[in-house]
């Protein structure tokens, strides 16, 4: 399998503190890579450096072999990279359907053609399919701000998939979601991975969620890669147990 994402010796310093300290890894096509680690281990900073939200101090990021270091998030998104954030990021004053249309409209035509083209940019059908896929179809016309937290989390994830990305980076998708919703979310992510061949990188603290979803796991501690391997291997790794999992 070819590598969709390659991260080489990535560093991010804030003053004297190295939040990400020489991290290297790759993500192969169609896999679900989990990233775990204690709070402050540099997981979200790593995401932000990969996705152009923060400029890395050193290192290189490649997408499908093309160097994308310091590329703007909107340009990366148009190359097929999508993400969710640690904190919920939806547009509460737009309807659920409009949130989804917004998530893909910039992939339709040019800026000028979008000004004079259809209001929905031809995406209503795709948005309705997506709300149905995430089992939110009865809420399509509701304002996103009126949804429950779990439903908003599902919408947040659905928005990341709306443009048909090749690579999706999910930052703590299970945070604050109840067990029923969590099962639904995991089920949807697995289905998306299987049916559409999307590649995922998932940051998560919920170990049951990570172990049952991810095919490979990377452990970060103090900005460095502590270990990498199959979920079962890492469960038995003494260094990982010491730094993160606990006895």
């Amino acid at each position: 399998m070819t590598a969709v994402l390659e991260v080489a010796n990535l560093r991010k310093r804030f003053g004297g503190v190295a939040a990400v300290d020489g991290v290297s890894f790759e993500v192969r096509e169609g896999e679900i890579l989990g990233i775990i680690g204690p709070n402050g281990s540099g997981k979200s900073t790593l995401f932000n450096c990969i996705l152009g939200q923060l400029p890395p101090s050193e290192g290189e990021v490649r997408l499908d072999g093309r160097v994308t270091t310091r590329m703007r998030p909107c340009d990366l998104n148009r190359l097929g990279v999508s993400r969710t954030f640690q904190l919920l990021q939806i547009f509460p004053k737009l309807s659920v359907r409009d949130n989804l249309i917004l998530a893909a409209q910039e992939h339709q035509g040019t800026m000028l053609s979008r000004l004079f083209g259809r209001r929905d940019a031809g995406l209503t059908e795709a948005a309705d399919q997506m709300v149905a896929f995430f089992k939110l179809d009865h809420l399509a016309d509701e304002l996103a701000g009126g949804l429950s937290y779990g439903q908003q989390k599902l919408l947040d994830a659905a928005m990341a998939f709306m443009s048909g990305p090749r690579l999706v980076l999910l930052d703590e998708p299970a945070g604050g979601v109840n067990l029923t919703m969590l099962a639904n979310l995991k089920d949807r992510l697995k289905a998306f991975n299987k049916e559409r061949g999307a590649t995922f990188v998932v940051i998560e603290h919920n170990m049951e969620f990570v172990m049952s979803l991810c095919s490979r796991v990377l452990v970060l501690a103090e900005g460095k890669v502590l270990a990498e391997g199959l979920p079962a291997e890492l469960r038995a790794n003494p260094a990982v147990i010491e730094a993160y999992l606990g006895r």
Binding site: P73, R78, K93
Partner: peptide
């Protein structure tokens, strides 16, 4: 829609292209 996204949450808007 893009203007509203810009007003409500420019970082998320940018991540959506």
């Amino acid at each position: 829609r893009a203007f509203v996204a810009l007003r409500e949450n420019p970082i998320r808007a940018m991540s959506l292209g």
